[in-house]
Nucleic acid binder design. Structure first.
Length: 469
DNA sequence: TGAAATGTTGGGGCG
DNA sequence: ACGCCCCAACATTTC
């Protein structure tokens, strides 16, 4: 009987954890490690909410493991070197990890596997309910349209698929704490503190469970409220799903077992997550290029000043600007607004979806390659099951529909706080006197629209028309 | 997980 | 009473 090493990555919890369960069951001595990956961290700005979010989660994992007699070993370096070195140092016969489906992670894991001298590398499904080729068409090909995928997903689902992996049964196999250095601080990692705490973002397993408990109270209203950014209708769990501080099985089991439109609509969203992970697995090219190769021929505009205005939330379209400011201010953006601003970037500004995708990747606390890429390609009409290219959101109509009173706009665009409801969605329609009456000068205190929607729409139709064949 | 353009219908004002 | 026009409301089609 030999020791094993469980390598934590985007699964920062100590319950219902596939790799930890498998290791504990098969080995009498199980070490746990997390590596702050310098190949990722070195590229980040010195202030990044995600690093702090991860550190808080890591601290909680360590505390929870200690409560069970173990501990978390934490390393700061390149996992290609750190994991094989630690595996050798501990003399383990196997390294266990939960599977990651991103191209870079697949390559990393293959290389770690190759470098493990005399130790096995075993990876497990943990991040999603159904992975890779578990949900396929009758013809054995991957789905590329969501609705039939979802139908097949639901048909395949058995409550047993959602059973939690037990940890406590074999927790006595956890290796006790070593004489190791204490957990690093943010400063040790080379980062500065962020506003995560003052934003009130719940962190770690405990934060995730608190959010989930709160959401359960509201889940019946989810279908009716989820599209309105001024209402807290969503679960807010996306960062926790990203870092595995909550278990997808726990969430899916609850949603599946619950009657009502709210729960089934929310379950659909969890299926979207599986869907986009499967798409990325089967079609890694989407990370760089359009899912539908024909759309690679699209000629996007180059307009740094327009991109900068979009990023800063200064496009002159209030809902777009409020959304973009929410992203920067909080690290999160309501999903309805992700669609609105993505449509605006690609179809009003005529900019490449990859520019927007990269901005989201930098700013989102919940950034996940598969979901983010899927969403952007959906909005840009270049993806699998994308919206038809001639569907172009009207940023004013969307605003009237989903922020009727302008409550969300006023929260994030204070210049417009006193603009009456009649003009809040299109303030440039105010006369000079009306502007003066509510204390805002369009073009000075708040930008005039950087593009005309009607004209931009015509240009976008032409842009897509040009590649039709 | 649209919106705009175009077509149709029907009520009401009016001569 | 009737036809005509306007136009809102709704439906269909087009992008």
């Amino acid at each position: 009987m030999s020791a094993a090493l469980v390598w934590f990555r985007r699964d920062l919890r100590t319950y219902d954890h596939a790799a930890l369960h498998q290791a504990l069951q098969a080995h009498p001595r199980v070490h746990c490690v997390f590596v702050f990956d310098t190949t990722i961290l070195d590229a980040l700005p010195r202030r990044d909410r995600r690093v702090e979010f991860i550190l808080r989660a890591v601290e909680e994992v360590d505390a929870a493991l200690r409560a069970m007699g173990g501990a978390l070993i934490v390393r700061h370096g390149d996992p290609l070197a750190e994991i094989p070195r630690l595996a050798a140092e501990l003399g383990v016969s196997a390294v266990y990890a939960n599977r990651d489906y991103e191209p870079a992670a697949i390559a990393r894991d293959a290389e770690v596997h190759r470098r493990l001298a005399g130790a096995d590398f075993s990876d497990f499904k943990d991040q999603v309910v159904f992975e890779r080729d578990e949900v396929m068409t009758q013809g054995g090909t991957p789905f590329s349209v969501f609705t039939p995928y979802k139908n097949a997903w639901l048909k395949k689902l058995d409550p047993a698929d959602l059973r939690a992996w037990p940890i406590a049964d074999y927790a006595y196999h956890l290796a006790p704490p070593r004489n190791d250095s204490p957990l690093p601080s943010l400063r040790d990692l080379g980062f500065e503190a962020t506003d995560l705490a003052e934003l009130g973002v719940p962190t770690g397993m405990s934060g995730a469970q608190a959010l989930f408990r709160d959401f359960i109270e509201r889940i019946d209203d989810y279908a009716a409220t989820r599209d309105f950014p001024a209402i807290g209708g969503t679960s807010g769990l996306s960062p926790h799903l990203r870092f595995g501080t909550i278990s997808i099985r726990q969430l899916a089991a609850y949603a599946h077992g619950q009657a009502g439109r709210g729960a089934s609509t929310w379950l659909s969203e969890l299926v979207w997550r599986d869907f986009y992970h499967a798409i990325l697995w089967h079609h890694p090219r989407v990370a760089m290029r359009c899912f539908k190769p024909a759309f690679d021929a699209l000629r996007w505009d180059t307009a740094p000043e327009l991109f900068a205005a979009w990023c800063a939330g200064r496009t002159g379209y209030p809902l777009v600007d409020a959304a973009m400011r929410q992203l920067t201010a909080t690290g999160w953006m309501h999903n309805r607004l992700r669609m609105v601003v993505a449509s605006f970037l690609t179809k009003d500004l005529g900019l490449d979806w990859r520019q927007g995708e990269a901005w989201f990747a930098e700013k989102l606390l919940d950034f996940d390659l598969a979901a983010n890429n899927g969403g952007w390609q959906w909005a840009a009409s270049t993806g699998c099951d994308a919206q038809p290219w001639f569907r172009i959101f009207n940023p004013v109509t969307q605003s009237e529909k989903f922020d009727t009173e302008g409550r969300f706009i006023r929260r994030y665009v204070p210049e417009l706080a006193r603009v009456p409801r009649k003009f809040i969605h299109a303030p440039w329609q105010m006369s000079a006197a009306e502007q003066a009456a509510c204390g805002v000068r369009i073009g000075e205190d708040y930008p005039a629209p950087v593009v005309d929607h009607a004209a931009a729409r015509v240009r976008t139709l032409a842009r897509f028309q040009a590649i039709r064949g």
